[in-house]
């Protein structure tokens, strides 16, 4: 279980009113797809990085299974939680195959057979020996997601996984996510500003505006029983 309580964060040291994240509490659940919805610059990426322990909060804490996240337990925490969308998850000048061979040794739960299955599903089988920097943005994103899913994480934090991808790739990625949630009870928290693409798959929505969670609830709660309003109206 991951939970953030009263998180505060700002970049740099000066400017008391320049907090990027202001008193945010969030608790994505395992087995569900939660969405962090907000405009560009609203603090989505910053919040995800705080949840993953890439940034240190200036106030509040992130808890993992009730234990406060710290330098001591972050390596163990990251055995169960994965982050997608950082862009620097692999060595650019190595192939997907070599990157996977090396990086998979970091994780006790890495499932090689499942990884092969996901690679086929993602249509990357023919690209495994290609150097990562030669792949398209969509291929790199798929490779990163497949690697993360093959770890069978309990939680998956995804930063704009659908940005700048063509519709076919987006469909593939959403299928991969749903497969993982269905098979492994993975809790997914993904950030996006593209309301249309994720409206059918999310279970819970957190709307973030100017570093605060302005609204949260299930998709049906926020959209209303009629279901005819779309997510754009939440901004």
């Amino acid at each position: 279980m991951i939970e953030a309580k009263n998180l505060k964060f700002k970049y740099g040291s000066f400017g008391a009113d320049k907090f990027e994240i202001k008193d945010v509490s969030i608790k994505p659940e395992q087995g569900y797809i939660s969405c962090l919805l907000g405009r560009n610059g609203s603090g989505k990426t910053t919040l995800l990085k705080l949840l993953y322990g890439v940034l240190k909060s200036r106030g509040g804490s992130v808890f993992w299974n009730g234990e406060k996240l710290s330098l001591r337990n972050i390596p163990a925490y990251r055995q169960e939680a994965a982050f997608v969308g950082a862009g620097g998850w692999c060595a650019d000048e190595l192939s997907i195959k070599r990157n996977t061979e090396i990086l998979s040794t970091l994780y006790t739960g890495f499932d090689n057979a499942y990884y092969e299955e996901l690679i086929d599903m993602a249509g990357l089988a023919g690209d495994m020996d290609k150097i990562c920097m030669s792949l398209s943005k969509g291929q790199r994103m798929k490779a990163e997601i497949v690697f993360a899913l093959a770890r069978r994480p309990k939680f998956l934090l995804m930063d704009e996984p659908l940005a700048n991808l063509d519709p076919v790739f987006k469909t593939d990625i959403l299928e991969l996510i749903q497969k993982s949630v269905g098979e492994n009870e993975t809790g997914v928290l993904l950030s996006t500003h593209l309301c249309d693409e994720i409206s059918d798959i999310v279970d819970k929505i957190y709307v973030i505006e100017d570093g605060r969670i302005s609204r949260s609830g299930s998709r049906f709660e926020l959209l209303g029983a009629a279901g005819e309003r779309d997510l754009k109206e939440l901004f």
Binding site: P75, G88, E93
Partner: peptide
């Protein structure tokens, strides 16, 4: 995997560049 860079040098990538988001 890649052409050797420079005279007698082999290209390298520091692990710190890619391990920041991993369970290391």
């Amino acid at each position: 995997e890649v052409e050797k860079k420079g005279i007698g040098l082999i290209g390298k990538e520091e692990l710190t560049a890619i391990l920041r988001y991993h369970g290391f």
